[in-house]
Design a binder for these strands. Structure first.
Lengths: 291, 291
DNA sequence: GGCGTCGATACCTCCCGGGTATCCATCGAG
DNA sequence: CTCGATGGATACCCGGGAGGTATCGACGCC
């Protein structure tokens, strides 16, 4: 009779449970995080292992560890959960278009490519059939995740800093880099400098930015979260930074930018998840390519 | 009390149900395909719409149509289901490595890059720490799907024929193309030809190959499924074909290949899903790059 | 050796996914 | 216009399983 569910594949609930346990490596904590009791969680994981016919965790009653298969499922499962979330979010958003709600969400790093972005938005808005575009500003390395889990539809990325794996891209512009220094600093007397000159400034170390996991790398420089903090620290004479030329448009009056001859050039690209080619997205990309 | 499931996102069961209905545009047929009765399916879809707060289907009691949001969920949902399936398959496979079971599955089009492939497999097999590699041969345009749903881990693709969107790639080799003709054909007297010479052969039209959906495009040429059929038809004087140079190694004795000067060059690339960088995969890719 | 920790087991409850029977709207044939 | 066929929605029932609490059992630690 009824209820022979187990005949199809995994349910997202099972995946969420497994990912929680695999991340915590502790059933109790994982259960608390999931808002359920520990026993059902144990059962669910056991059932998942039975269904897959695979041992995912080594339990030794004092410690929990991932098996080889378990670590595969952790990374693949995260990707799958992201895809499910993306489906949900994009569907919800698609239903709101027209009521003045965002038809597209564009994500880029705060304080980068500002001029390019505003030109793009202006140009697209005057296209026939343009939908409204929301702009989402985020930190470094977050864009890929936002595109994958559906919070954003399209991103402005900067090679070689941002990874573009798994995304479709089109190049928009390339530019050199400048070193940003406090006004009056000796180096600002020069028309251009080299990377060696910049790294030699041990009293003005490069700042440390948080990674995707929110932690800061070790090093001498001050920790910064956004460009306002960064500019203030440079103005205070506590740091210097090598940034793409276009940052000049946003610079405070007490900062000076000097071209760095041998810094790698930065390419701004527009990137989007390869399978989601909606008409609105295609229009935005076309506009972007035409600059 | 117990059971407040609905607080988290979609379940894969709901997605599978919706995709079935969206593809069939008919609740009864979809239910039959899913192996369940029609009423539970209606309920499940209604519940999904309630959960998302979004209308996915327009039902008019005689016809079912997708809303805008529904077509978004169809494409995003398929991608998500593929990702879940991929997680399941790759996890199962990861658990079998060591028992002589395939550690990696490489997919490529039948009858392409044969020499490169065997050199790659030989070179990789002699690496320290190599796992066993299964080779999967498939038709045109199937590779992307096999990589996405986890039936394969890595593919040999041929630009510009195969799409590489959403995949990480490394170029392996480039080659020109040749036209394959029956021995004794007048054109075989020449050392090289141009595309115009080939398209002028209206008695030897290019063959039609099935697309990803299994249907053949319209046109004059004969329908072929694989290279054996193709070679036989050429030998019979019913077709000709422009193929990468490397096909020469597989040619029957009664066929002749003539270089085509202005045909686009073909690049063989090794491609893999961007997030799945297992050690075994990395080793194979490294070997491939070193040719 | 007792105690604390943590995962597994036992057992209960009730929600929900599955079923069948039926209703109702629409379309087409006559 | 009526009537049957078609196809989705509704009503209702049933059983499995997802959730809970209580407890066990294994291990590490003081």
């Amino acid at each position: 009779m009824p209820c022979r569910r187990y005949r199809w594949g995994m349910e997202t609930r099972e995946l969420r449970y497994f990912v929680a346990v695999a991340e915590e490596l502790h059933f109790g904590r994982a259960a608390r995080r999931l808002g359920i009791a520990q026993p059902p969680l144990s059962r669910a994981i056991a059932q998942l292992e039975r269904r897959l016919g695979v041992a995912l965790l080594e339990r030794t009653s004092r410690a929990v560890a991932l098996t080889e298969a378990g670590s595969v499922l952790l990374v693949e499962g995260r990707a799958a959960l992201d895809a499910v979330e993306a489906a949900e979010r994009r569907t919800r958003r698609a239903a709101l278009v027209g009521a003045g709600r965002p038809g597209l969400v564009l994500v880029t790093k705060a304080g980068a490519s500002g001029e390019l972005l505003s030109k793009l938005l202006d140009a697209y808005a005057s296209e026939p059939g343009a939908v409204s575009v929301d702009v989402l500003l985020c930190g470094i390395g977050e864009q890929e995740r936002l595109l994958r889990d559906g919070r954003a539809d399209v991103a402005l990325l900067h090679r070689p800093f941002d990874s573009t794996v798994g995304l479709d891209t089109e190049e928009l512009s390339t530019e050199g880099q400048v070193v940003v220094l406090p006004a009056g600093h000796p180096l600002t007397a020069q028309a251009q400098v080299r990377m060696a000159d910049v790294t030699a400034l041990s009293d003005l170390p490069p700042p440390r930015r948080p990674g995707p996991d929110g932690t800061y790398p070790d090093g001498p420089g001050p920790q910064v979260r956004d460009s306002t903090q960064l500019y203030q620290l440079i103005a205070l004479g506590r740091a210097s930074a090598v940034l793409p030329e276009s940052c000049r448009a946003d610079l405070r009056r007490d900062l000076v930018a000097v071209p760095v001859l041998d810094a790698p050039t930065v390419t701004t690209v527009i990137a989007w998840p390869p399978h989601s080619r909606s008409l609105a997205l295609a229009g935005l990309i076309r506009t972007a390519i035409r600059l």
